[in-house]
Amino acid sequence: MKANLAWPMWALMSAAFAALTAILAKVGVSQINSDLATFVRTVVILIALAIFVTATGQWQAPSEVTRRSWLFLGLSGLATGASWVCYFRALKIGDAARVAPVDKLSVVLVAVFGAAFLGERLSPANWAGVALIAAGVLLVTLRA
């Protein structure tokens, strides 16, 4: 697979893998504690990424990483861990078809946080799309 694919292709592949994650995790967490399931998933990811980074020759000396990068990547890691713990607990007790869309409210929050904290500008059409995503999540969570 070419590493220079355009960002929309990488984003679509991310969405496809995220969908698989929800389905596979729902089955995997069904008979074990959700926190242990999160740990197992994390170990698998760690091993897979170590192999990937080694195979592609992307290792860097830790001294080449700035303190700012260490700080924000560390905070991002903590946020990821908290997200995964919450996600697996939600999957343990909820339907994957409802849990995953609610989890994707992160798309709405990224738009809001990006505008508020990073100075990113979205057009009115972009904000309408964000509102539709939020509305879609609400509709998916309704009980029939």
Rank of each mutant, 00 (worst) to 15 (best):
Q58H: 15
L138H: 11
A115C: 01
A61R: 14
G77T: 02
S83H: 14
M13I: 14
S14M: 15
I133D: 01
A125N: 02
A37W: 01
V44F: 10
L12Y: 04
G119P: 01
A25Q: 04
L71S: 06
L105T: 07
V112K: 04
M13K: 04
G119L: 02
I32T: 12
G74T: 00
P62S: 09
A48W: 01
R143G: 08
A135I: 10
A128M: 11
W59R: 12
T38S: 13
S63F: 08
L78W: 04
L118W: 09
V137A: 11
S76I: 06
V110K: 13
M9N: 03
S83K: 13
T21H: 15
G114T: 03
N4E: 13
W10I: 13
P8G: 05
C86L: 14
A97F: 11
G77Y: 03
V112P: 01
A61T: 11
V110D: 07
V112S: 03
G114L: 08
V140I: 13
V107N: 09
A96H: 04
R121M: 00
G94M: 05
I45M: 13
V107R: 06
M1K: 09
S69Y: 13
A11V: 12
L142F: 12
W7D: 03
L105G: 11
I23M: 10
